[in-house]
Design a protein around this nucleic acid. Structure first.
Lengths: 181, 181
DNA sequence: AGGCGCATGTAATTAGTTACATGATTCA
DNA sequence: TGAATCATGTAACTAATTACATGCGCCT
């Protein structure tokens, strides 16, 4: 049900198509939400029927037609109501790497290090992309508070993740040096 | 499907009941996985049938009977195979507060601050609990590498979260002071 | 007397993923 | 000529949540 409010929040900033929303999820929101196009299009249609949003159909000749969604007054009210009146649910995280890390006891040191190195590679890439995206955003003419806050969050999150990885590697290497001899 | 491996990982350290697993999820794994008792009992039964785990039934008179699950050789092999051969899927995070933060544009400053303060309160509690749990764990006689790594992760995560909250409050207050005048 | 901890399950519903489906344009 | 971008949808399936269900012992 909160996917709905994520969509309302995105559209509240400026009208967008389903396709736009998918891109925004991937680029700007990886650190705190995710969804797929099939789920997004379905939810947009539902909200359109419930008059939380409405759309303008744009006929294009060089690319497929598209629907540009905007918030209705009702949609904006519903978004604010949810934000202020609904009690905060704790975050739900599903991080496969950390369940692997939690089970390191079944592996050998080189195997552990290999996995940590893989995750460092991946996270470095994501971190760099976020930093780049924030730079671009700050140099552009738009400046939305929410976007700045959450972009900063993403940078801090990935930095913390990478620092933890490096700490973990050092910990593992030292621990197994001591204990294997 | 990865719930299965989370369970296998937990049981790999020491035999446990479904009830134990629920507690471990809540206490030690909030920062990277979560599940409910109904899902856990169902998955344990399934894995039992597939011989990835087996159980010893313990009849008790003062409390309900229980099943203590252990890993089978097959289960351990399957866990290691998944850890080393399955490509890492990116983390999936659903953090409601951050979708609220992303939509701060529809609120007033006092409303934003109220929400941030709520989350600081909540996160402080979780952070303190994690620190306490780690202290207890480090002073106990057990010491499993995976547990130490992921407990440290939890502490770093919640610390980062709180620091970001404080930064966000300062940012918001300054930004709206400047722009409202 | 009421709530919490222990302990395990099933049923109903909702959310999320993966696969199927189409089709023009642009770039290498 | 093959992949990527733009653009939207439905269908089938799997995962996750919430509600239903039981019951004793202990503490306040």
């Amino acid at each position: 049900m909160s996917l709905r409010y994520a969509l309302l929040g995105i559209i509240s900033k400026k009208p967008a198509t389903g396709y736009d929303v998918v891109r925004i999820f991937k680029e700007q929101m990886v650190y705190f939400w995710n969804s797929t196009h099939s789920q997004i299009y379905t939810e947009l249609n539902r909200m359109d029927q419930e008059s939380l949003i409405d759309h303008e159909l744009v006929i294009q000749q060089n690319s497929p037609n598209k629907k540009i969604y905007s918030l209705t007054d009702q949609g904006r009210k519903e978004l604010v109501r949810w934000m202020m009146e609904q009690p905060l649910k704790p975050a739900k995280i599903k991080d496969e790497f950390l369940i692997k890390a939690a089970a390191f006891n079944v592996l050998s040191l080189p195997e552990m290090i290999q996995l940590v190195d893989e995750v460092i590679k991946r996270e470095t890439r994501v971190h760099e992309m976020t930093v780049q995206w924030k730079d671009q955003y700050m140099n552009g003419e738009e400046s939305d508070t929410g976007t700045i806050l959450t972009l900063e969050y993403g940078i801090r999150y990935s930095k913390m993740y990478l620092e933890w990885c490096e700490w973990a590697k050092a910990y593992l290497e030292q621990f197994y040096k001591e204990n294997d001899k």
